[in-house]
Computed example of a mutant assay.
Amino acid sequence: MSEPPHAESRSDAELVRANRGFYESLWAQAKLIAPERFNTWPLLHELADAAPRRLEVAPGLRPRLPLRGTCFVDLSHAALRRLHDSGAEAVHGMIGALPCADASFDLVCALDILEHVADDDGALAELARVAAPGASVLLSVPLHPAAWTAFDDFVGHCRRYEPAQIAVRLARHGFIIESSAVYGMQPKSSRLLELGQWYLTHRRERAMWWYNRVFMPLGLRFQKPLRWRDGLGDTDGVDELLLRCRYRPAATPSH
């Protein structure tokens, strides 16, 4: 898989520091948005209703599974406090070392996280460890390394995935892609992106005022409906995919 050269040298510790430095301050000034307000809700709420044991990893303040009855794991103490205040069960941890028992969840959700982790194979192995056989596993991945932009650098990505390789990569860990949906949104205007980055870096309080009161409400209002399609579907021009997988662990050899 081709990756940006700078991303290959980033250790897990460096990624944790970079993401904690960006997202901790981001969540400290942001508001929690209920999962029902996202365009993922029509696709996910029935899955959640059918799964009594649910885990969502690294939701920040944008959880996609129901607050009640879901275990949330996040690095951000600011996000954990807001989740607790909303009645959710939330514990401190990271995707590479989940504070959860083996085979303990029927639904596992990890959106917008694999691209941030240096050892994504280790992260997938952890998701496989905590998923019960037959569990539904929801992942999102950005596609096409050639589509790398300054936005990827700014938010702490260390890779984009080749569509032809993602199914094979997931299958190695027992995750079989059943369906996908075109997902995610990246700024189209480089000028607007540069302006947003400058304000978040140098005028964070002002930037967060606009984000919370203007840009996020507008983004929620104009979300496009999502629709499942079989397998990966057509990935030409697709920036990011939401993947619905089934966990089928490899049979343990008998002795």
Rank of each mutant, 00 (worst) to 15 (best):
R191F: 14
S104V: 08
N39T: 08
A132F: 04
D106Y: 00
L26N: 02
A101I: 02
P66K: 03
F151S: 04
H144M: 03
R246L: 12
L65F: 07
D239Y: 07
W27A: 03
V73M: 11
L83W: 06
A18E: 15
L75M: 13
P133H: 06
L220N: 05
Y211T: 03
R129D: 03
L15D: 00
V117P: 02
A171I: 05
D102I: 06
V168M: 11
L43A: 11
Q223W: 10
A13G: 12
E56Q: 05
N19Q: 06
S11H: 04
P217K: 01
F222W: 14
R10Y: 05
P145M: 07
I177Q: 00
Q165I: 10
G21Q: 09
M1C: 13
P249W: 12
R129G: 10
L243D: 02
E194N: 10
L124R: 06
S2L: 13
A164Q: 15
V130H: 02
W41H: 05
Q29N: 04
V91N: 03
L67P: 08
F105P: 07
E3Y: 12
V73E: 05
H45R: 14
G219C: 09
A58H: 01
S2F: 11
V130K: 00
D121N: 12
L107S: 05
Y247R: 06
R64A: 13
K31G: 03
S11T: 15
A78M: 11
W209H: 15
T201H: 11
V91S: 07
L195D: 09
F72Y: 06
N212L: 11
L111Y: 05
